[in-house]
Simulated scan of single mutants.
Amino acid sequence: MKADLLAAIGGADLARLEDIRVFALGKSGRVTALLKTLGGMSPEERQAKGPVIHGLREAVTEALASRKASLEREALDARLAGETLDMTLPADVPASGTVHPVSQVMDELAEIFADLGFAVATGPEIETDWYNFTALNIPETHPARAMHDTFYVDPTSTEREIVDQWAKAPPMVLRTHTSPVQIRAMQAAGGDTPIRIIAPGRTYRSDSDATHTPMFHQVEGLVIDKGITLGHLKWTLETFLKAFFERDDIVLRLRPSYFPFTEPSAEVDVGYSIVNDKRVIGGSGGGNGGGWMEVLGSGMVHRKVIAAGGYDPDQWQGFAFGCGIDRLAMLKYGMDDLRAFFDGDVRWLKHYGFSGLDVPTLSGGVGA
């Protein structure tokens, strides 16, 4: 039996090898049947025949394993000899995410203003009426409240105790600007420390069209110190815009305007030129078919706002400015519809987003 089985194993292929294994070592196999007879033998007989039967099983098991390994090695060698790998073919690029233009611009703003000594400050998106309006010189009867199209947060429960508690609490709103962060930053500073911050973040207003969305992103800047003038404000904005648009020919125009939290207030226009029938930021703003484009609101911080933040307005002055981050992204990177920023269309994001390998940086600093 041993000679017959080893001969069969030596000439078998992989499929036949499995049949031989079942024939010899399976539950009803020939070798298995011999092993079962050991239980009925006498001790003397078992001592004589046991080693022979166990030796048969081990020889067959070893021959099966050796033959299988040999056949698999031959199959692999044949496959390697028949297949080739073309190293000149381009590798498949795996799908990867992209950086949203808003996130990219936020990073650029933080980098530019860090070079100017500004820190980044944040605050809650659900604010009290006092922080969002009253502390910013917008009392309940002020007409400027109508300019903000505010979302008020209403109680969601009809339980009596919750309604009573809501009636005692100050009105809550989705912040209409990031200006409340200015008040919180002044309060945190204690009324006796210079402040230089920017406050980027989400804001909310009930408005929706090609250039407005109910939720949008805004950045505001605040400087509080002694001896601050409009000249400091203009230099800061001019330096910022030159670094952001990466052009030295940025020209600004400050137009008198009105904001309840600044006095005097100014809208900031930047000059643009016409290049290949498209508006490009930079240039004189008046000649060669160019013009002016509004990009920022700014002004000297109102005395009442300084006082609400805990500072003495007779000792401390400051300036503030604000603009839409989404609008800055549109101007710099060529988008024409704000609503697409929030549609969640992957095709749009692949077109306008930034991959991890080609995200533009402003590492050269504001003086570059």
Rank of each mutant, 00 (worst) to 15 (best):
V52I: 01
S363Y: 02
P170C: 00
S42L: 01
G10S: 01
T213K: 12
A320Q: 07
T88R: 12
V251N: 03
H177F: 06
A65L: 00
T211Y: 02
D358G: 02
V295M: 13
F23P: 00
V173T: 04
V223F: 02
V305E: 06
P94H: 11
T61E: 15
R79M: 01
Y311T: 04
D343H: 15
L338T: 14
Y152E: 13
P260S: 03
Y272N: 00
P200H: 03
Y311C: 06
K304A: 14
L35C: 06
F216W: 10
P143L: 13
A59P: 02
G39L: 01
A368R: 15
I281M: 07
A81F: 07
A368S: 10
V346K: 00
G291Y: 15
H232F: 01
H148W: 10
V301F: 02
E159K: 08
D345I: 08
M106D: 01
D225W: 06
F244H: 03
H302W: 05
S66A: 14
R339H: 02
D209Q: 09
K332M: 00
T262E: 05
P124G: 02
T262C: 04
R205H: 10
G310H: 05
G289R: 09
W166M: 05
F321I: 04
D129G: 04
R202V: 11
V153I: 10
